[in-house]
Design a protein around this nucleic acid. Structure first.
Lengths: 349, 349
DNA sequence: TTGTATGCGTTATCAT
DNA sequence: ATGATAACGCATACAA
């Protein structure tokens, strides 16, 4: 079943059939209709390989993420996939894990499959060492590379990110002004975005005139229980803190568990803020105040930018959107001017 | 940069180069080495389209799931993708949503991309009406179709599922024998797997000599708050229940929230069991007893079966694995013989 | 508006 | 063991 069968049955040449397939205007309505009829009658579908051979594209985007079971990444992938398809592109998903060598292999594989672009989801793709990011820059020589929540200044690389620094900075300051004089920052990776958040936290302490002692930023595993245990351990060592800002919701939930274990009242004895506004925030008890980094917007923007790149329109190499505090029950009510906080809204699903 | 360039530089014919690429034995070691050297030197990669044209396969599997941000589905996708790649296959992921028409389109699209097989993840793919599943049966005429947590008896369709019926049946009986005489079942879809769970629940009531009044199985939205509100509403109407068995962890968390709202003690006043052993189970407070349906095993088995199908070995049309109760703090300790319960283990991430 | 002929980069079938 | 050559199914430049 190929284009010849159709052309034969329709009594036209394959060129005409091809024109119909590709929506070429140079076909009479009558002929077009005849061909279309035959195509549906035969249940004909163009062979993608033959097509790809000629056009050297399969209208396919490669998406790389560390782990599609991470709620944030999963959400991003979901929206990316959806929107790409809306624009006529299919997606090739790769869950690469966190190891560099594996990632390099996946990238090579995607390129060998002749994808039309590559989207890297998650700030964890940015290695601290420049050299380790070279493979990304190399890929950008062949196809456009899109980064979600990561930044790399390089031709043909386009970045869309949430302003994590500002979000943490603003809200840490608010926290302190509410009387929480000993906030603790909890993070679990040294990714670009984590480091941004950390800076935001440290700068906020400085801006409020607090000493930013090293211990007020603690690193731990990406896990509820590890976070809880770490806090318990700190507490038993006599370390004092009255608020926890988690770089991820998981860590913040750990803080809530910690408070529960010690019988601390939330938010009176301990305030907690998470990050991502994931389902964990509403699952937690009490429900978690969390920063929404607008996954959907990030994804939509990325796709929109990519389409601009494809059409040759000029596209910004870097787009930043702001995070937004979604207040729930682990922080006291506060009001202020300079950043549009928002009352409890629907959580990202 | 193509096979001709390589053949020229290596001083052999393209046929020989092709043989080297495909590991054909009819090449002298000397020639093979020479060709390999040239290939790496030139950084040559075979063109997948041309290759696909000849072989009519791209070693690619189409994976369909409703929503990659659902923890269970995300996990399955993750493991599928990983294991397929281990077997030399790439994956095409489609998040189809829950609507039939969209799903039919996605399936058509995958077939038009000439995938080598299709994997449907999640029992939600099985419609109650036979007619609505016809498109799946049709697809099976072209390529093998794998179902995870769904069952359809049809040639070239292979199903791998968790024995949801038995898991719910067994554990509901245990619950009742512990003294919970008024268990309530909460579910949120009429998918194959949901209905299996429901039957298990109903049969358990009957087996324990309890009247299975309609109201003891309630349907509600797939959402923590909706579940909580429904329970509150039932309570205010004077409806009595002392245990909740959720068909999904989300619903069980809703039950925990309900208990919190009313000041009920868990598990004394209310026992709760969830399903999936997702991260929600450990996020909940108190932590949720939940049934682990072994996503990873399901995924591994599916891939293994598919590989058997590809090699022409005979493969079982249906494989069932058993669920397993992971006990935490929303049920009292109980011990018994006939089903291997397990103490709190690591949650699925 | 329609048809003819060629190229795309492989694999596979013959020969040699 | 190696080489020449015919598919594979489509897009497209060119001709009519």
């Amino acid at each position: 079943m190929n284009i010849y069968d159709v052309s034969k049955k329709a009594g036209v040449s394959i060129a005409t059939v091809s024109r119909v397939i590709n929506g070429n205007a140079n076909v009479s309505d009558k002929t077009r209709q005849k061909v279309l009829n035959v195509m549906t009658e035969l249940g004909y579908t163009p062979n993608v390989f033959a097509r790809g051979l000629g056009l050297n594209t399969m209208k396919t985007i490669g998406i790389m993420c560390a782990d599609s079971s991470d709620p944030f990444l999963a959400n991003a992938v979901y929206h990316l996939e959806r929107n790409l398809r809306k624009n006529g592109y299919d997606s090739f998903l790769c869950c690469t894990g966190y190891e560099l060598a594996a990632r390099q292999n996946y990238l090579k594989l995607l390129l060998s499959k002749r994808v039309d672009a590559i989207i890297l989801v998650g700030s964890n793709y940015l290695e601290p060492s420049k050299k380790d990011n070279q493979y990304i820059a190399d890929a950008a020589k062949e196809v456009p590379v899109m980064l979600i929540n990561g930044y790399l200044s390089h031709p043909n690389i386009y970045c869309t990110l949430c302003d994590d620094y500002q979000a943490v900075y603003d809200n840490t300051r608010k926290l302190i002004r509410q009387g929480y004089q000993r906030p603790l920052f909890l993070y679990c990776s040294r990714s670009y975005s984590s480091l941004q958040k950390l800076s935001g936290f440290q700068d906020a302490l400085a801006a409020e005139g607090l000493s930013a002692a090293e211990e007020y930023a603690q690193m731990c595993g990406n896990d509820i229980m590890q976070a809880k245990d770490l806090l318990l351990c700190l507490h038993s060592r006599g370390f004092l803190f009255d608020a926890v800002f988690g770089a991820e919701d998981v860590l913040a939930v750990g803080a809530v568990k910690y408070a529960g274990a010690l019988g601390l009242r939330i938010p009176d004895d301990l305030a907690v803020i998470g990050y991502n506004n994931s389902i964990l925030a509403v699952c937690s008890e009490p429900e978690l105040t969390s920063i929404d980094n607008h996954v959907e917007t990030l994804s939509l923007t990325t796709v929109a930018t990519l389409m601009r790149v494809f059409t040759g329109s000029d596209a910004p190499n870097r787009t930043t959107i702001s995070g937004e505090l979604v207040r729930r029950r682990t922080t006291p009510a506060w009001s202020d001017g300079y950043s549009g906080g928002q009352q409890d809204t629907r959580v990202k699903v």
